[in-house]
């Protein structure tokens, strides 16, 4: 993916993020995820039924990287089982941290494959994943 395409995808998800609202019905798990070193602060809501992610929404304020990353995460995780979602997150984690990963699995999230070059923004890209991973881990155990 060339840099111009990446930039366009990021900006599109920043300016028109998916599901940036509170859930419209009850039964969602909520998690707050914030970066201590900056001012990103998001609440993420997840609806999980029979170990399948039915819906994700979010609210809060954060930078372009965090917001777009959250939107892309939502696009990619809805419909996945908890186990699949955790694998996806591990894969994203590996990409951010320059380890071997499966690029095919990540789809649009590949736009952050160079983010490791900007150390201060790695945590921005990973912010939503840190939050949702906590919730999913609980469901895996059950």
């Amino acid at each position: 993916m060339d840099d111009e395409v990446k930039r366009e995808i990021i900006l599109e998800h920043y300016q028109n993020p998916l599901h940036r609202h509170k859930p419209e019905k009850d039964g969602y798990e909520k998690v707050n995820t914030a970066n201590q070193s900056c001012i990103d602060n998001l609440d993420i809501y997840v609806d999980i039924q029979d170990k399948i992610i039915k819906d994700i929404t979010f609210t809060g304020e954060a930078c372009a990287i965090s917001i777009s990353s959250t939107s892309i995460m939502i696009q990619n995780l809805i419909g996945k089982t908890v186990k699949e979602a955790l694998e996806y997150i591990d894969n994203f984690d590996k990409m951010i941290n320059e380890k071997e990963y499966n690029a095919d699995l990540l789809k649009d999230a590949n736009v952050y494959d160079n983010i490791y070059k900007q150390n201060s923004r790695k945590s921005c890209a990973f912010l939503p994943y840190r939050g949702i991973r906590e919730i999913l881990a609980k469901y895996l155990e059950e």
Binding site: C38, I39, D40, E61, A62, C63, A64, I67, R121
Partner: peptide
């Protein structure tokens, strides 16, 4: 535009 993005 988020303040931090402007700072970046």
């Amino acid at each position: 535009i988020f303040a931090q993005d402007v700072a970046y």
